[in-house]
């Protein structure tokens, strides 16, 4: 009989997938992926209402858009382990002829992906469009999105934030991965963004803070609050405080692992901290 894996088992196995994927091709973005692992597991296993199988239009189900596409490893692992495609395909990540491109794309027909992302700042607009389509279709399901925090330096986000509030896009929950890191250092060092909560509020959004963004239960609880705010004329933002590289001690609290793969020893060390739960791909 099929036993449902626990959320914790999924989190740990997903971390292993991320580490092994980027190690295998010596490229990719483990830091942000690890920081958002608990979020992805909570989202796909507890928060979103999903139909079986995959349809691009996502009618009659919740849909999710990843704007910071460079954290594709966590997205791919989550989709595979949710059953969108075979977990064995994770071994093709970033390789020639793969559906698992360096950054997510619809171009290769990978189930679970509804838009290409990687060039930053575009996902929130697309999510808003999908939310408007749901309203036009009288589909009461919710659109979810995730952006990075450094990504908010892209101006298009602020166009999108202004629009969503002005046009009462209240079937949208957009999370910001607040890990405080970007390629060239901390977000405060590179381009300090000030009080993001105050900014979202000033732009007319509801804001829910999840201060323990690497705690599955805290994420689920925060999203219950966020969902309770839907349908009231305002878009909803979840400020998700995460630690980049979470779950691997030497990758935490630094931007060093934003876009760097572990070597053989580092991989062994990282995997030892996350012993197999569901079986490697």
């Amino acid at each position: 009989m099929n036993q449902q894996p626990t959320l914790n088992d999924l989190v740990i196995q997903t971390r292993r997938d991320i580490l092994r994927m980027v190690h295998q091709v010596n490229s990719g973005h483990p830091g942000g992926s690890l920081g958002c692992t608990e979020f992805f597991i909570a989202l796909y296993h507890k928060i979103m209402k999903l139909n079986p199988g995959f349809s691009m239009d996502g009618i009659g189900e919740d849909v999710f858009f990843l704007s910071n596409g460079h954290i594709s490893p966590v997205f791919y692992s989550t989709l595979a382990r949710k059953g969108y495609f075979d977990v064995a395909e994770l071994a093709t990540f970033r390789k020639l002829d793969s559906r698992l491109q360096g950054h997510p794309t619809t171009h290769e027909g990978l189930p679970g992906i509804r838009m290409a992302s990687g060039s930053l700042g575009q996902g929130l607009s697309v999510a808003i469009g999908a939310a408007l389509a749901k309203k036009l279709n009288q589909d009461s399901h919710t659109v979810y999105a995730l952006t990075g925090d450094g990504e908010l330096q892209e101006g298009q986000n602020w166009e999108a934030l202004m629009f969503a509030a002005a046009k009462k896009v209240d079937n949208l929950i957009a999370a910001v991965d607040l890990n405080g890191q970007q390629i060239d250092g901390s977000t405060d060092h590179v381009l300090a963004m000030g009080d993001l909560k105050a900014k979202f509020l000033a732009f007319g959004w509801e804001v829910v803070e999840v201060t323990q963004g690497n705690d599955v239960e805290a994420i689920i609880s925060g999203y219950e609050t966020a969902q309770s705010l839907l349908g009231k004329g305002k878009p909803v933002c979840v400020l998700l405080h995460t630690v980049m590289g979470h779950g691997v001690d030497f990758m935490m609290y630094t931007h060093a692992w934003h876009g760097k793969a572990p070597n053989d020893d580092q991989l062994a060390q990282a995997l030892a901290q996350n012993p197999v739960t569901l079986g490697d791909y």
């Binding site: 838009m115 469009g129 999908a130 036009l136 999108a160 002005a166």
Partner: peptide, 28 residues
């Protein structure tokens, strides 16, 4: 009027919203 979206002076956002509208079967 229900099938018109005024995005204001924000063309980048307009292109993204148009892309998103197709997800759900609209023809923007």
């Amino acid at each position: 009027p229900e099938r018109f979206v005024q995005v204001g002076i924000a063309e980048a956002n307009m292109m993204g919203i148009a892309a998103g509208l197709t997800i759900g079967g609209e023809n923007p």
